[in-house]
Simulated scan of single mutants.
Amino acid sequence: PMAPREAALVMRAAGELTAREMLLSAGVLDAPTMQQRGFLNRVLADSDVAAEALATARRVAALAPHAARQNKQCFRALAQVLPGQTAIDLIATGSAYGYADSAEHREGVAAFIEKRVPQF
């Protein structure tokens, strides 16, 4: 059996029906199927994986680090929304807009207005 926390992660990421298929019947699903089910963003040829991984890492590294942390925190919070609770209630109680006065935010806005690449 899969540990409960890991099973919950698989269920949340792959969807309940896909998780059940994988865990209850030892289903091994190919990449195109997992992409169709929303578990994968893209499927690449083996020869393209390294270049795509490097390009993605470079794209992510060029982004605002504080904004990335806040986006990750927001996604984690949204995953914890309880029945009867709205996502906006959960986000509003945190520091969702604490970044607005940061140098990083000012640089992002300035770069957007000046139509240039931001320097984070």
Score class of each variant (00 low, 15 high):
79 A>D: 06
112 F>Q: 03
65 P>K: 10
81 V>H: 09
56 T>R: 15
8 A>G: 08
3 A>G: 10
34 M>W: 04
109 V>W: 02
21 E>V: 03
23 L>Q: 00
91 I>M: 08
92 A>H: 11
19 A>L: 06
109 V>R: 14
63 L>E: 14
51 A>W: 01
52 E>D: 13
109 V>S: 09
98 G>P: 12
31 A>P: 05
41 N>G: 12
16 E>S: 13
109 V>Y: 02
82 L>P: 02
8 A>W: 07
13 A>I: 04
100 A>R: 10
95 S>H: 10
103 A>P: 11
82 L>V: 12
75 F>A: 15
89 D>F: 00
5 R>I: 13
119 Q>A: 15
97 Y>E: 05
72 K>I: 04
40 L>R: 12
19 A>M: 06
39 F>A: 11
71 N>L: 14
39 F>Y: 02
111 A>D: 10
50 A>Y: 08
66 H>G: 07
3 A>F: 03
108 G>K: 00
70 Q>G: 05
4 P>E: 01
79 A>H: 03
49 V>M: 12
20 R>K: 01
115 K>N: 05
15 G>C: 07
54 L>I: 15
30 D>A: 13
3 A>C: 07
15 G>W: 01
107 E>Y: 05
118 P>F: 09
27 G>E: 08
79 A>Q: 04
90 L>V: 15
9 L>E: 15
39 F>S: 05
14 A>M: 14
116 R>D: 07
82 L>S: 13
74 C>F: 06
54 L>G: 14
4 P>Q: 01
31 A>Y: 05
25 S>R: 13
98 G>L: 09
118 P>W: 08
35 Q>A: 13
13 A>N: 12
116 R>E: 12
11 M>L: 05
33 T>K: 10
87 A>I: 01
23 L>A: 07
25 S>L: 01
7 A>E: 11
118 P>Y: 02
19 A>Q: 04
62 A>Q: 14
32 P>G: 06
101 D>L: 08
14 A>E: 03
33 T>C: 10
32 P>K: 06
5 R>A: 15
57 A>N: 06
35 Q>F: 02
103 A>S: 08
69 R>N: 08
6 E>I: 14
65 P>R: 10
40 L>Q: 11
51 A>G: 14
115 K>L: 06
50 A>Q: 09
68 A>R: 13
90 L>C: 11
102 S>I: 03
86 T>G: 05
116 R>I: 14
94 G>W: 00
78 L>T: 02
95 S>Q: 09
58 R>P: 08
66 H>D: 08
56 T>S: 12
102 S>G: 04
